[in-house]
Amino acid sequence: MSFHPEMAYDATFHKSARTLAEPGEPFVYTAEHRARFDEIVTRYPADRKRSAVLPALYLVQHQQGYVTANAMRYVAGLLEMTPADVEDVVSYYTMFYTKPVGRFVLSVCRTLSCALNGAERVTEEICGALGIRPGETDASGTFTLIEVECLGACDRAPVVMVNDGWQERQRPEDVGRLLDDLRTRGEAALTGCVHVIEGGATS
């Protein structure tokens, strides 16, 4: 994907290399994630490790697709929190999943500017194409559809977030093509962020 024509994004950066955990499976970070965790913790005062709970949970989700109870216990141990404190955080923030999700999580923005530009029709098209309702995962485990609130790209409405990547100006009639492209090309199929600045030209 390209957010900016000149920006050399690391192509692997947005790829979710995760394999879904089985419920009940024990959890430890991979060596790579442990190293990143150890670096992140140093950003906060030594007696305030708890500040690292959001990044720590992102690493969990990146590793196994969603946050299991065992992972919460593991993170709690690392950050000297109680598992209940971690669950408190996980249950509050919408971007952590506590159930398995599909390979691609399609988050359709439903708030005003996107809605004015046909976001509900996009959701309907996705529902129709995959035979699911918002909140559900399709039978093949490839796509999960959720409706989310304002994504902060109202000038490029309607916006769909796909995992950590962005798909902008998604017309309802092109939903089928997007789904096919995702199946074959993965996140590389996405438009990324395309800003419209002075003069109205697109870059």
């Binding site: 500017s113 004015l116 109202c154 000038d155 800003h195 419209v196 109205g200």
Partner: peptide
Amino acid sequence: SGHVKRPG
């Protein structure tokens, strides 16, 4: 944003 020709 919203109902304009050149949102941005």
